[in-house]
Amino acid sequence: MRFLTWLLTTAIAVATAAWLIDGIRFSGPDSGTAEIQEKLLPLILVSLLLGLISSFVKPVLTILSIPFIIVTLGLFLLVINAAMLMLTAWLADKLDIGFDVTGFWPAVGGAIVITLVTWIVDGFIGTDAEKK
């Protein structure tokens, strides 16, 4: 159950970032039920990829970047999160999933949106799932 909650939270956050940030997008139709049908599986796959990359690559980068994190008072973590999103887009492109991040600044914006939306959604559904 915890995995499904995490996957749903991440999918909502990635979908919100793709909706709000101009340089983040899923390929396919732009409206209607066809959009939902064609983008749902890629959204789930991108959420899984982002989770895997954040689980395995991000800790290594964070440890290696401790001096930069200290000097920038933690702001370098935003750069690491943007790099994780760009790595996810690169891997999604190699796997032909249809997810694209066009540059560094859209990745930074996407990292901010994904972090905030994940935090908000976890606040709503995370506490109920933990009580059960």
Results as ranks from 00 to 15, higher is better:
1 M>I: 10
4 L>Q: 13
4 L>Y: 15
4 L>R: 08
6 W>V: 09
6 W>F: 12
8 L>N: 01
11 A>Q: 08
12 I>R: 03
12 I>P: 00
13 A>T: 02
14 V>G: 04
15 A>W: 10
15 A>N: 11
16 T>Y: 00
17 A>V: 04
18 A>F: 05
20 L>Y: 06
20 L>D: 14
22 D>G: 03
23 G>K: 00
23 G>D: 09
24 I>Q: 06
25 R>P: 01
25 R>S: 07
26 F>R: 00
26 F>L: 08
28 G>Y: 06
29 P>A: 10
29 P>V: 10
30 D>F: 02
31 S>G: 12
32 G>V: 09
33 T>P: 09
37 Q>S: 12
38 E>M: 08
39 K>G: 01
39 K>F: 04
39 K>L: 01
42 P>Q: 03
45 L>I: 13
48 L>C: 02
51 G>N: 05
54 S>E: 12
54 S>C: 07
55 S>I: 02
55 S>D: 13
55 S>R: 01
56 F>I: 08
57 V>K: 03
58 K>R: 15
58 K>Q: 11
60 V>T: 15
61 L>N: 04
65 S>M: 07
65 S>T: 04
66 I>K: 04
67 P>F: 11
68 F>A: 11
68 F>L: 14
69 I>W: 00
70 I>K: 02
72 T>V: 09
73 L>E: 06
73 L>P: 07
74 G>Q: 06
74 G>M: 07
77 L>S: 03
78 L>S: 05
80 I>R: 10
81 N>L: 05
83 A>N: 02
84 M>L: 12
84 M>T: 11
85 L>I: 15
86 M>Y: 02
86 M>I: 06
87 L>D: 07
87 L>T: 10
89 A>Q: 01
89 A>I: 00
89 A>H: 04
89 A>S: 11
90 W>T: 13
91 L>W: 11
91 L>V: 13
95 L>C: 10
98 G>D: 05
99 F>H: 02
101 V>R: 05
102 T>A: 07
104 F>C: 03
106 P>C: 00
107 A>K: 01
107 A>I: 02
108 V>F: 14
110 G>H: 05
111 A>G: 15
111 A>V: 12
112 I>A: 15
112 I>D: 09
112 I>K: 09
115 T>P: 12
116 L>K: 05
119 W>I: 00
120 I>K: 02
121 V>Q: 09
121 V>G: 09
122 D>K: 05
122 D>R: 12
123 G>A: 10
125 I>K: 00
125 I>C: 06
126 G>Y: 02
126 G>A: 10
126 G>R: 03
127 T>I: 15
127 T>V: 11
127 T>F: 11
128 D>R: 12
129 A>H: 06
129 A>G: 05
129 A>T: 15
130 E>A: 06
130 E>M: 08
131 K>G: 15
131 K>R: 12
131 K>N: 15
132 K>N: 10
